[in-house]
Design a protein around this nucleic acid. Sequence first.
DNA 1: AAACTTTACGAAAGTGCTTTCGTAAAATAA
DNA 2: TTATTTTACGAAAGCACTTTCGTAAAGTTT
Lengths: 331, 331
Amino acid sequence: MIDMKQVAKLAGVSVATVSKTINNYREVSDETKAKIMKIVDELGYVQNSSARALSTKRSNLIGIVYSEHLHIGLEHYFFSGVLEAFKKEVENLGYDVVFINGRDIGYLKKCRVRGVDGVFVVTAETSDKGLVDLFNADIPCVTTDTPWNKIPLVYSDNVQSSIDAVKYLHGLNHTRIAHIAGPQTSISGRERLEGYRTGMKHENLPYDPNMVAYANEYDSTSGYNAMKSLLEHPNPPSAVYVVCDLSAVGAIKAIRDANMRAPRDISIMGFDDIQLASHTVPSLTTLRQDRDSIGRTLACTLIKLINKEEVDLVTKIPCQLIERESTKVKK
Amino acid sequence: MIDMKQVAKLAGVSVATVSKTINNYREVSDETKAKIMKIVDELGYVQNSSARALSTKRSNLIGIVYSEHLHIGLEHYFFSGVLEAFKKEVENLGYDVVFINGRDIGYLKKCRVRGVDGVFVVTAETSDKGLVDLFNADIPCVTTDTPWNKIPLVYSDNVQSSIDAVKYLHGLNHTRIAHIAGPQTSISGRERLEGYRTGMKHENLPYDPNMVAYANEYDSTSGYNAMKSLLEHPNPPSAVYVVCDLSAVGAIKAIRDANMRAPRDISIMGFDDIQLASHTVPSLTTLRQDRDSIGRTLACTLIKLINKEEVDLVTKIPCQLIERESTKVKK
DNA sequence: AAACTTTACGAAAGTGCTTTCGTAAAATAA
DNA sequence: TTATTTTACGAAAGCACTTTCGTAAAGTTT
């Protein structure tokens, strides 16, 4: 491998000058810079990031952490989208992205081994001891969907979106609007329920605890079961706002199994806008999470944090209401 | 940050001995090892991977490359699954995973900068000059879905799976079986078509070129259009084997739009088993790609390659036929 | 012309680790 | 016992950079 020494020799300068040229110090004359860069190109010289990191104590590496015992990995629609956007943005700023796994020595120590400049904790689970260690350490961190102490958080504006959802359904003349709530251990589950209640109040609709069913997971089976329980009510809802698309799909199935139809008999509204949403029958009216904006904001926040600039501790990104076939006007 | 010098001092030994202990050389007495490890634990010492890499010329880093102008990124169901499995496996073997982007200096140079020990090219596009440079360099590489010279390839057994598909449909008494083929620029597109033809031959069914329609992308719109063209045939098929699930979804929509029903009028079979597949109406009969096995095999192959062991240049992983609602017996 | 400032560069120390090689001491063989 | 091998360890060089500081030479100011 070609190193600075060789470049220096060919250029007739010292390695110090080569280094300064590569890093664009201004104390090198333009003439010398040009001469050096020419040789750099000819030889195909590239920096050795390990040597650089050793010397500067900066790796230009961003770590990605996700709790492994949640089996939400790369395949999760929301997180993979956020991650993709995040990655693009930090790469534009000159960083590379490395996965940090907690094997053997735990997340924190692994971060130290790799010398990452900052980390994005994608899916946190605060019962994960290793994650808490990381959060409590002095490494710049950002996260989404899991609030922790002084760690900057960027996520969807669940409350406002839920208010929007209720308003939208009321606008379609629905007054008996139910909510299939997510696990109350997660912030999105809690906030979407809160938004639903606030929305009902805003619309001057009565809040009926029986019109809230709980999905204990963010999946379709949970949605199916929750919908079933709502259907057992003597006066079932004419519209249901569901905590996520997957559960909404389950809810639609429950409606069909009860010999009814969505949206003919009951309107269904989801959250997320997963790929599936536009392909189901009926396609889903839903709130689209702005994965791109969340990812980019996380990236900017983290880089600022690394550079010791001021950052917002909480950033809420608006969702967009996507109207499709699963909701319709109540006659 | 704590370094070996501090550990050495506290243990009353030289840094050389600490290094040898950490790396489990046998020339250190068990006694000394124990003493050193105790101090390592107490101080919370961790290795500095940059320094180590600088010295050993091994980074224990695996690079992930995917062509950016295909907009298949992390969000792609198949690739994210393969990547997840790959990642798990290499992590188990002591490597970490870093994304390599082609910005500024191209993939190859970036690989050299980071000193990756090997790279997994996830989605290749041989029109990508930077990728070809990488393939032609001396860095250990594996890939899926894009054959290249001497680069080991691990992917689904498209031909055999397609033969299975035709056999299965024939087993349901279908004799007029069409194929919606994928882009013939991709190996999977070509091989699935090849398998379809071979399957028809095996089943002693006539091959009719009019019974092959081409989807120019792996998406639902292309499937929709292809199906439409098949329906225009005076004697349309009773079953269609579609190159991928997404296109299959499009095909089903086309059938519905023609006032027919799948599988009542036409059976549809997909490929992939994406998440969507079990949620559509009707749910999709399909060939499940073994993303896990593909990812793991890629990992093992790459590590072997790094260690200069022998590897297979091509590994085909079987698919599994998943029977759901979109196919039925022809009466 | 003298005094001062700026510019352009290099020597060398430092970054944290690995690994070779040398060498005492201990263990074994003769 | 002496000769030989083995064991256990350390000194030091090397890995490819960055950065401080010193210093000539050139430029600027009085």
